[in-house]
Simulated assay, not measured.
Amino acid sequence: MSLDVVDLRTFYTGPLGAVARRLLGRAIRARWSNVTSLAVLGVGYATPYLDLFSGEAERVIAVMPAAQGVVNWPSGGLSAAALCDLDMMPLADASVDRVLLVHALEIGESPREILSEMWRILTPGGRLILVAPNRRGLWARMDTTPFGFGQPFSRGQLTTVLREALFSPVHWAEALYVPPIPRRTFLRSAATWERVGATLALPFAGVHMIEATKTLYRPVAIRQTRRVGATQMRPVLVPAPRLTRGEGMASLAPVHTASLD
């Protein structure tokens, strides 16, 4: 199920969206503390987190899926947002250093094709951060937030789809342990929920956050060589008996000769 860009923007302007932006933004920035002279691409609806890199990265671009819609970003200056199909992006090969996927994989028709396209546009050694709803978390069970739409994932499912798209996970984390209830009691204690949940590794975090690097080699399938046993080998020609002197040179004769009547 696709999300509408208006609903996404409304969520992030509300109190619960502000908490999600703060907690996830802190975790993302901890992984990418320095993006100087790098090209950063946000895919899905990543604009609430791209402001972290504005003014530091060489360029920051936001790409949103066609079914979702697009909003102008940043609010001031020239727009750096575009609308396109996530599995067929108008970017050159190896043209981006960092890719941030938020609200993208869970609503895509083919997660593997989306990640394969990210692999194509990433530079050698490029990195990707994927934020996806946790199947066991409360945020995926409530449709009052964008993380409650689409397909949630387990850690094993994300590992499989990343490796199929030739990515190697290098860091795993969970976030949004606070219940998705817009009450002041929960909102004020969100940092405490996050600290306790991460310390105890509780299983009900709202989202998975995985950092992966681009693998530069493609696996080659190993074929089993079939060897034919010696008993199955049948010679076509065998040497004829040696001729006596004067009868000519030795020649090869068939094993079986046909008689002519």
Score class of each variant (00 low, 15 high):
5 V>C: 05
211 E>A: 05
76 G>V: 11
38 L>V: 07
187 L>R: 08
140 A>H: 04
164 E>A: 15
32 W>I: 00
205 A>Y: 12
93 D>N: 07
48 P>T: 00
52 L>Q: 06
50 L>R: 04
96 V>N: 10
62 A>Y: 04
165 A>L: 05
139 W>S: 11
244 T>Q: 14
74 P>C: 01
17 G>I: 05
225 T>V: 07
65 P>T: 08
106 E>Q: 01
251 S>E: 13
122 L>K: 01
116 S>N: 11
226 R>C: 09
147 F>A: 13
134 N>C: 04
59 R>Y: 03
49 Y>V: 11
254 P>F: 09
5 V>P: 05
183 R>C: 07
36 T>M: 03
57 A>Y: 01
187 L>Q: 09
183 R>K: 10
64 M>P: 04
236 V>L: 13
5 V>Y: 04
50 L>M: 03
81 A>P: 08
176 L>I: 14
165 A>G: 04
49 Y>W: 15
93 D>E: 07
141 R>I: 06
16 L>D: 11
180 P>I: 14
252 L>V: 15
101 L>I: 03
124 P>H: 06
72 N>K: 15
253 A>H: 07
204 F>Y: 10
45 Y>G: 03
41 L>H: 06
205 A>R: 07
1 M>Q: 10
1 M>P: 13
100 L>T: 06
256 H>I: 09
102 V>E: 05
74 P>R: 00
204 F>M: 12
